[in-house]
Simulated assay, not measured.
Amino acid sequence: MSVATLSLFRFDGLGPRLWVIGQMGAARFGLAQERRAAFWKLCGSGTGQGFTPRPNWGVWAILATWPDEATARDAVATSAVHSRWRAKAAESWTLFLNPTSARGAWAGVNPFATTGQSQPPTQTSGPIIALTRATIRPARALRFWNRVPDISAVIGADPNVIFKIGIGEMPLLHQVTFSVWPDAASMAMFARGNGPHGRAIDAVRDGNWFAEELYARFALLGTVGSWEGGDPLARYRTQKDAA
């Protein structure tokens, strides 16, 4: 069963940030030689709540898929690219993800497809992770980004969202949103309710804004590293237990 990883890296100071910008070209050669990875992408991130067109020059990401969890954990720990980025970063955090559903395409393929498995895994407990990826049609980009501030404000104020970040391969046109929710009901309420996100989804469908799109859901297998001084999911579990 394939396993996905999202590795986030925070780079402090001018030198490390210039280095990682260069890595957006150089690291492609290393990842192309990483035979354990079935799919990989290098991404930048957005500022604010993460869902904005303004780049965050300090936060960068590597997303990849691997044949199984053991391979994924070993690759994140030992691969040349992950190791170099970790050594330069002020902190890093990786989530190990088990795809439970995926539809659509990313660069012409569905890297998280569960097709061919005897039965897609069913999540019965624990956080639910949502990933959406879209290639925005250039003629629709202004309309799309005009919607983003309202969506960003709502997700930032939502007490249910455990973690969220916006990443992307290309500013303005290739956008990935990644969020962690305590349960399916909380995620659905945000995504499909009569709020900014729900209205934006309706506009996307009516206006044919996306040239390509992918929607995936994952169960969490585990994490390694820290983000903003700790593990956001460990903090969530602590708060939940205290409540």
Rank of each mutant, 00 (worst) to 15 (best):
residue 90 A to S: 14
residue 73 R to A: 07
residue 95 L to V: 09
residue 84 R to P: 00
residue 66 W to M: 04
residue 104 G to E: 07
residue 55 P to K: 03
residue 65 T to Y: 03
residue 51 F to I: 09
residue 9 F to M: 07
residue 19 W to S: 09
residue 69 E to A: 14
residue 79 S to D: 15
residue 67 P to Y: 09
residue 16 P to C: 11
residue 60 W to M: 13
residue 98 N to E: 15
residue 88 K to Y: 09
residue 11 F to V: 07
residue 47 T to M: 11
residue 75 A to F: 13
residue 11 F to E: 02
residue 105 A to C: 05
residue 40 W to V: 01
residue 63 L to Y: 11
residue 83 S to K: 12
residue 22 G to V: 01
residue 24 M to V: 01
residue 67 P to V: 07
residue 106 W to K: 04
residue 40 W to M: 02
residue 69 E to V: 09
residue 63 L to P: 01
residue 12 D to G: 07
residue 117 Q to C: 04
residue 84 R to V: 05
residue 40 W to E: 02
residue 14 L to A: 15
residue 111 P to S: 09
residue 63 L to R: 05
residue 86 R to H: 04
residue 94 T to N: 04
residue 36 R to Q: 11
residue 16 P to M: 05
residue 100 T to R: 11
residue 88 K to M: 13
residue 68 D to V: 05
residue 21 I to M: 10
residue 90 A to V: 02
residue 30 G to T: 04
residue 100 T to E: 14
residue 37 A to R: 04
residue 71 T to V: 15
residue 25 G to M: 12
residue 90 A to Q: 14
residue 113 A to C: 07
residue 46 G to M: 05
residue 56 N to G: 00
residue 10 R to D: 05
residue 67 P to Q: 07
residue 116 G to P: 11
residue 56 N to I: 08
residue 40 W to H: 04
residue 97 L to T: 10
residue 9 F to G: 04
residue 124 T to H: 12
residue 56 N to F: 01
residue 53 P to N: 09
residue 68 D to R: 07
residue 9 F to A: 03
residue 73 R to Y: 07
residue 44 G to P: 01
residue 80 A to S: 10
residue 36 R to H: 08
residue 121 P to G: 00
residue 51 F to M: 08
residue 126 G to D: 10
residue 72 A to I: 09
residue 41 K to M: 10
residue 49 Q to L: 10
residue 28 R to S: 05
residue 27 A to N: 03
residue 97 L to E: 09
residue 86 R to N: 06
residue 91 E to Q: 12
residue 28 R to E: 07
residue 82 H to Y: 14
residue 40 W to N: 00
residue 110 N to K: 08
residue 65 T to Q: 00
residue 117 Q to E: 14
residue 9 F to L: 05
residue 75 A to C: 10
residue 80 A to Q: 12
residue 55 P to R: 06
residue 20 V to D: 00
residue 79 S to A: 12
residue 104 G to H: 03
residue 20 V to M: 11
residue 117 Q to H: 08
residue 125 S to A: 15
residue 63 L to A: 14
residue 11 F to D: 01
residue 36 R to S: 13
residue 71 T to H: 02
residue 36 R to L: 04
residue 58 G to A: 14
residue 36 R to G: 09
residue 73 R to P: 06
residue 17 R to L: 02
residue 95 L to W: 11
residue 124 T to N: 11
residue 94 T to Y: 06
residue 47 T to L: 09
residue 126 G to T: 04
residue 40 W to K: 00
residue 75 A to L: 01
residue 100 T to S: 09
residue 102 A to Q: 08
residue 83 S to W: 10
residue 60 W to E: 03
residue 103 R to C: 13
residue 90 A to N: 14
residue 19 W to N: 06
residue 95 L to T: 11
residue 115 T to G: 06
residue 42 L to F: 10
residue 80 A to P: 02
residue 11 F to G: 03
residue 12 D to H: 08
residue 87 A to K: 12
residue 113 A to Q: 11
residue 58 G to L: 01
residue 73 R to E: 14
residue 88 K to A: 14
residue 76 V to D: 13
residue 32 A to P: 00
residue 61 A to E: 08
residue 20 V to R: 13
residue 36 R to F: 01
residue 94 T to H: 08
residue 115 T to H: 10
residue 100 T to Q: 12
residue 67 P to R: 12
residue 79 S to M: 03
residue 84 R to K: 15
residue 116 G to M: 10
residue 117 Q to K: 06
residue 82 H to L: 05
residue 43 C to V: 02
residue 79 S to N: 15
residue 129 I to W: 08
residue 32 A to V: 01
residue 46 G to A: 05
residue 27 A to C: 07
residue 56 N to L: 04
residue 81 V to W: 00
